[in-house]
Write a protein that binds this DNA or RNA. Structure first.
Lengths: 346, 346
DNA sequence: CCACCTGAGAGATACGTATCACCGCAGCTA
DNA sequence: TAGCTGCGGTGATACGTATCTCTCAGGTGG
């Protein structure tokens, strides 16, 4: 169809106003003052634009200008998992919030998925991320080779979550896990706990490792007795396992994820062990957005804020206003009350 | 900066492969077969494109009129509300699922928000939607004037949810509410209920109106006594209101939304009225994704599938393979057991 | 009176892509 | 050998905008 006829352009305005297209561009982009256009002409141009119902063509504008106002969001996993307690949801909420504020649109890269369900940036030979001015990269999974290549190509991106990809020095936004762990450990120590074990995910990446080492360090400082870590999966937390921990004199557990904490709670229930009277449990993760679990002691991860900050960082990066290697750490919420009690006497 | 240097174009590929830019365009858009390009050249072009990490420029491509593999998602409200029981979440999950399958990327138009929180397509003078090949439009709010204009401009879009915008005949994907209502009414009638009242949202749009009229019609067919509708908000459902209903002999309520159903449940609890023994309640809405509410009788809205179908429809529309005015209606899940019981004897 | 400056606007150009019109060449026929 | 026919590609053009360069007239100073 004649796409042309039903969409007035600057050329049409120019013809109607009896000026050149260049003048129309200048007037309509608000540069009339600096470029010194006669007020009378300005008025005529504006009137003509209004009369024709002119709408600038974004495509043409960004073609000319470089930026297109699109910020990418990429993960190496699905963005909207089937599970309701969506890991990404809060991040996305923050991302969208900030994008709105800064007048940017978001591109969810869903075309990059490979048959096995993982996602790849360079899968089909072309780097679709380039569609956007820059990108936020988040998620547990990762692909160091692709990230290195991306960085080598000079593509601007920002991580959510602490990253230590060898070749890159991309900015990231992370939660202040060490401080959160320190707070939890101190709280337990103050309540008289001395035998505290750490229950962590068996997948160890920078963010996980960070929490574990912080636990070890602050535990030592607070006078806790050293315990072997339990790096495991939820289904390996059985009543037997729990009995073993209690048998070792453990009076409190620090769980890395909510799934682990819930597995502990279930095992305790089956084992007839009361939480928190006989066993205190601290969770270093926010509860899933859906289920408002009462009765847990946890330090909420500021996912929403992390998402928002990542967008701000990316835009600063694009503006060249970000010093190289800039990172941002956001404090977690203080430990809530619930599943923590004074250490039982023996 | 020289934006140019770090973003290879077809020209660069052409130079590297020793051919003309036109050939590169033909090969890379998959028209090599119809335009009969020598396989050897094709290979050379593809190799050069891969080597340079080429990715087509969205802006240029859509300026020229081609497709760019971007599908827009636009709402007149926020996409990620603060509330956990996210209305959009399930739709988006379905949308993303299908986009992955069809190799399309998604653009969340977040730049269109006005200061008052509502969103407008033409707010800032430019129609950003044009960046995408087409768009899905969803949400309760709407802006008929803008939609008419969008349609008049020939922009391809698809609704989620039944729409009846005057000037437009855009395709839409809707849930089969009439059938769901019919099922609910029949179930209640079979259990001996005769006095059944309808509790609906006070905002009446096509999807709401459809349910109400279906209730009236099927109620009549199933021999229910006519009742005045309660079109209201959750906070207006008090114990007094409930007492009034029961006083009128009402033995069952059909609630349009989950919020209304929960308000009814709370009022019933305070009033000492047992659900479902003394009052049956049916909800015509899915429970929020987070809270797995047991004990409700409801007909789940197939949001996920609706989202997926909307993407399929949009792509068909773009391919010109969609007959004008095509609409799609998806069956709701059958009524679950829980808050429905035989009518109490008087 | 002429050289020179200045302001207001016209004209030209480039961004990256898709496509239309053309063109040389090889193979074939008459 | 001249003319025709496809094939395989080249060159040119247009999309709508922003901006750079150029023109032209009027004013100014020496």
């Amino acid at each position: 169809m004649s796409q042309r006829s039903d969409r007035p352009g600057q050329r049409d305005i120019a013809r109607l106003a009896g000026v050149s297209q260049a003048v129309v561009s200048v007037v309509l982009t608000g540069k009339a003052e600096t470029k010194r256009i006669t007020p009378g002409i300005q008025e005529k141009v504006r009137a003509a634009a209004t009369q024709l119902g002119y709408v600038p063509d974004v495509a043409a504008r960004s073609l000319r200008g470089g930026r297109n106002g699109l910020l990418g969001v990429h993960t190496f996993e699905r963005v909207f998992p089937v599970r309701a307690d969506d890991y990404y949801h809060e991040f996305l909420a923050g991302i969208e919030e900030k994008a709105v504020e800064l007048g940017q649109d978001l591109v969810l890269f869903s075309s990059t998925q490979r048959p096995d369900g993982t996602r790849s940036i360079y899968a089909n030979g072309s780097n679709r991320l380039r569609l956007a001015d820059g990108a936020i990269i988040l998620g547990l999974e990762r692909n160091d080779a692709e990230l290195e290549r991306l960085a080598a190509e000079g593509y601007p991106f920002v991580f959510i979550g602490r990253r230590d990809v060898p070749g890159t020095s991309a900015p990231y936004v992370a939660a202040d896990y060490p401080a959160a762990v320190a707070g939890a450990v101190r709280a337990l120590a103050d309540l008289g706990h001395r035998q505290v074990a750490y229950v962590g995910n068996d997948v160890r990446r920078a963010p996980q490792e960070e929490r574990r080492t912080a636990f070890a360090e602050h535990g030592r400082r607070s006078g806790l007795a050293p315990q072997p870590d339990a790096l495991t999966t939820p289904d390996q937390i059985t009543t037997d396992w729990l009995a073993g921990q209690l048998g070792n004199g453990v009076t409190a557990l620090v769980a890395e994820t909510f799934e682990l904490a819930e597995a502990v709670a279930e095992a305790a229930k089956r084992h007839g062990c009361e939480v928190p009277a006989e066993l205190s449990v601290v969770c270093l993760d926010s509860p899933p957005t859906g289920s408002v679990v009462a009765g847990w002691s946890y330090t909420a991860i500021p996912r929403r804020e992390m998402g928002a900050r990542s967008i701000a960082l990316l835009l600063a990066l694009l503006d060249g206003a970000l010093p190289a290697g800039h990172v941002e750490v956001i404090a977690c919420d203080p430990l809530t009350e619930g599943s923590v009690a004074p250490a039982p006497h023996r």
